[in-house]
Amino acid sequence: MRFRLRMPSLKVTVGLALLAVFTFVAVFGSALAPYDPSKRGKDLLQGPSGKHWFGTTHLGQDIFSQILVGTRSVMFVGFAAGILATVIAVLVGVTAGYLTGFAGESLSTVSNVFIVIPALPLIVIVTNVVPNSGDVAIAAVIGCTGWAWGARLLRAQTLSLRQRDFVQAARANGESTWRIVAFEILPNLTAIIASSFIGTVMFAVLTEIALAFVGVSGISEWNWGEVLFWAQGQQALSLGAWWWFVPAGLCIALLGTALSLINFGIDEIVNPRLRSSGRAVVKAADGRKVRMQIGFTPVLSQNQNENQNSNDGGGR
């Protein structure tokens, strides 16, 4: 499949750049960190300084190092859960869309059940109950509960694709069912799968951080949510130690923004109407400003005044 390369818009470039930064930190974080994040130091609860860029905790630990090292856990769980959830979503959603009758309906019902049941309480309960969960187990739990949105989306798309002539033509040609699903239908779904993947990664990141914040045990040593957990526990707010919890939150927000900017880009490829379409207010030849409406182009007459005087309605 040939990809048409087009200059990505500003939004998408910014998003990709941010994501690249985070990935880099995730891989090299421990090497880059100036201090061991768990090591206690002498400067207790200090604000940002030359020595500690993000300040220190109540035990003298360097917050900057904690954030750097914690990036790996966040990115790993986020992407691992995202991949797992997307794989399940594709399997369930496309099958539910392609199969008719009871099989398709029941798969669809299963995914609807998972959508409606509130995710966070369920995840909290399961991770709490399953003993000794590490990063991998957390990613597995999040992946196994967060696939439902994507499955529903893929099912709807598959249902509509199934009716299209080229699928019927492939059948009439004698193509086998699994080949039709894999090579005719799936390639048309790539944009949606990518978009759903990114959405799921965002969900997984937020959920993992929430879990760490709340104190669900077992997540790896350092993690942005863990930083916030300690900040909350040590009453950082009332102590005025804003530097303890601001960086973690900002990182989450930046990562989320990067992902949704990339999502915008994918949306715009799929639905060209969504692109920010240049200027909406343009100047007509006689200097008036006209607002362009979506859906039709107004015809601008050069001689507006003259026509108002004349009486003929027809002609033009």
């Binding site: 929430a210 916030l228 909350q232 919890f245 973690a248 939150g249 923004t257 949704s260």
Partner: peptide, 17 residues
């Protein structure tokens, strides 16, 4: 989108501060 990427609880922390 930046605002909606901020976790609810963190926004809560900030607003408390």
């Amino acid at each position: 989108s930046f605002l909606s990427s901020i976790p609810y609880f963190w926004l809560g922390l900030i607003s408390v501060a």
